[in-house]
Write a protein that binds this DNA or RNA. Structure first.
Lengths: 242, 242
DNA sequence: AAATATTTGTCCGTATGTATT
DNA sequence: TAATACATACGGACAAATATT
């Protein structure tokens, strides 16, 4: 019995889908039991049964729920992937170390001029050439994050080929004379994803994306890599240990 | 010239409003200049001019843009508040230390039984009584985050009154014999906000909320406080220094 | 085994909101 | 401003699969 706003530009069925996803995530609808029936849900949300059905259909499509005629609707999967974030964050290792089968996909690479922000982060002149490498991280066959990586070309020319060959930024950096590195800082924001990212992450329009921008520095404290990672917010949680 | 999905449950005008908000946030539309004209924007997004007008109207309502007849559309405010997150995170201090005038508002308090999650976090038995304190953080007159704070009643009975009087959890804890504390861990997620939180944060339905759940421990490493903070994602960025 | 209730799935129609031309 | 197409939301009726009595 709660109100959904019709004039927000977000359809009722999508607001209800979001609410159900939350209720599953926080355990209000346990994974073992069936969800309340469509009529019960409709009265709970104060909408028609068909509207609830649209919401459920979207969540079935998404893989969160499974509906069986005559029996009920059940939670198909519930847990979020857990990503440690800290001084020694390496996404490929985070994926590999987890309970799921992780995989890195090399998307593209190229040369870009450094904008103000990246120039400052990497301590180069604005306009200096940067190597850009785009990677996609998969877990259990689902895309989890897309990452853009930028390196100063002056120092890391040819790194794209090594990343492509090894599938790992850590390995490529080691081959280029950077035995170890760590995070200097990370900035987190959340918002609606851009269409390019939504396509890559196989998300619907309006889906939420968690963005982490970070700088890695070598043992001497010199900036090595600027990385912007976009996570499918529904599929992950970021964990900081202090 | 990009595609917007009509079957996503999110109206085109809202998708475009989200896109414009992003472009303002990352500096593509600088705060000084006027935005491109409505016709230019319409062709850029591949939609009709009327649809762009709806998007701009929503952003004007929201306070992000200002439209002047005959002159153009301008950015009214753009920067996000920056929140440091780390071992010594204290939200009230983060607000007070910044360039903006911060303020803590005491919302409510009460006693709750510990659920599984909070019991584990605070190292008490499930069902044990917890003191709950709800706080609202404002900056420049706008709500930025709502925080639920939980303390074991056995050790911190009466803390609500001290928080209410001082407006600070740090001060209240000091008065109760905890001279210092720090973060043990923080878990970050993002999603669509619940209606209760959206109301408090003065956000429209479907708006995005960044959630940080964390545990603070005392100098001996004993858990003191479980805190869940919900940020209006459009208004903040979380920054981790390593 | 049979009847009944419950639950999801499909079909009809109508009204309103959204987006384009 | 008006005409048109599509998406959204509601309401009702019934079918099909399953569970219960």
């Amino acid at each position: 019995m709660q109100e959904m706003d019709r004039r927000s530009g977000v359809a009722m069925w999508r607001q209800i889908a979001d609410e159900i996803r939350r209720l599953v995530a926080n355990g209000t609808f346990p994974a073992a039991n069936a969800l309340p029936g469509e009529i019960a849900l409709a009265s709970r949300f104060g909408v028609n049964r068909h509207t609830v059905r649209s919401a459920i259909a979207a969540l079935v499509q998404e893989g969160l729920l499974r509906a069986e005629r005559g029996r009920g609707t059940f939670v198909e999967k519930s847990d979020r992937l857990r990503f440690p974030i800290g001084r020694r964050t390496r996404f490929s290792e985070a994926l590999a170390g987890g309970p799921v089968s992780g995989q890195t996909r090399y998307l593209a690479a190229g040369i870009e001029a450094a904008d103000e922000r990246k120039a400052q982060a990497l301590d180069v002149d604005p306009g200096a050439p940067l190597v850009r490498i785009d990677l996609l991280y998969m877990a259990d066959g689902l895309p989890v994050s897309v990452a853009g990586n930028w390196f100063a070309q002056e120092r890391f020319d040819g790194i794209a080929g090594k990343v492509r060959a090894s599938g790992s930024v850590t390995v490529a950096l080691r081959e280029m004379g950077v035995p170890d590195y760590h995070r200097a800082w990370t900035v987190l924001t959340a918002g609606h994803g851009e269409n390019v990212d939504l396509d890559l992450l196989q998300l619907a329009a309006g889906a939420i994306v968690l963005t982490a921008e970070a700088v890695n520095v070598d043992e001497a404290g010199r900036p090595i890599q600027f990385v912007r990672t976009r996570f499918a917010a529904d599929r992950v949680e970021l964990r900081l240990e202090s």
